[in-house]
Computed example of a mutant assay.
Amino acid sequence: MPRGVVHVLAWTLATGAATTLSWWGVHSVMAGTAYDPPRALPVVSAEPAAAPDEPPATSASSHRPAPAHTAGPSAGGPSAPPPSPTPSARPSASPSASASASGRVRSYTTEGGRAVFDLGEHSATLVSATPGAGWSMQVWKTQTWIRVEFGSGAERVSVFCTWHDGPPRVEIGTY
């Protein structure tokens, strides 16, 4: 009987030591992998300005109205909330742009989904790509081009950004 207790005690100590060592190793590796979540960039409309009597149309769901600036508190009571953005029709390929630290952020909305690129002077990066409902997506990247392909059955929509022979340019193809 004492011999069995010694074996169980030795097995328990060895298992506890192995578990502790494994946890410590995994914890030290995983502690260095924490990252900041990606920042969301606003995407504003690149459509021409509307006539003075028409409300401006927005093409992005992330558009927020500009805050109202006042010189001081108003004496007339609470102010009205800012107007909500008006939805607009989704064109087949509409670029939208806003300024960023490295270039222009442009959004290309297609039948298959939306691809957003940060276009610099000599290169580009893919900010995000989101397939539409019922569509799948694949992304290919090299040092001189990025291709985002949306697919649904036999239908394919490709958003292709190249910069190998000049500034970045984007082409959209359906096949």
Rank of each mutant, 00 (worst) to 15 (best):
V29G: 00
V43G: 03
S100D: 08
A51Q: 11
H122K: 12
V6Y: 03
P56T: 02
A99T: 10
G25I: 01
S88V: 01
G166F: 11
V127S: 06
P87Y: 00
Y175F: 12
A101T: 15
P82I: 01
W11N: 04
P67F: 05
Y175R: 14
V139Y: 03
T125M: 02
F117E: 05
G72H: 11
R39G: 00
V44Q: 09
P48I: 10
W135Q: 09
S152M: 12
T109Y: 01
E149H: 00
S158M: 15
A154F: 11
A68H: 03
W145R: 05
V43H: 02
V127A: 10
A133T: 13
C161N: 13
V5C: 04
A124G: 04
A14Q: 05
P167L: 11
V139C: 05
V170S: 14
V8N: 07
I172F: 11
P55E: 08
V29L: 05
V43F: 00
T109M: 12
V43C: 03
G77Q: 06
D118S: 07
E47A: 09
W23C: 03
L119D: 06
R147W: 04
R147P: 02
T58H: 14
E171M: 14
T144I: 14
S152Q: 15
P82K: 00
G112C: 11
Y108D: 10
S79Y: 01
Y175T: 05
T19D: 01
P131N: 07
S152G: 07
T125P: 00
V26Y: 00
V44E: 06
V139T: 15
T142C: 02
R90W: 07
T58S: 11
P168Y: 13
D36F: 08
A51I: 01
T12R: 11
E149K: 04
G72C: 06
P81Y: 07
H69N: 00
H69R: 10
G120H: 07
D118T: 06
S123R: 15
E47S: 09
A93C: 14
P56D: 08
R64W: 03
V26M: 05
A71I: 07
A115F: 12
S102M: 03
T144Q: 13
H63F: 15
G16N: 07
R169A: 15
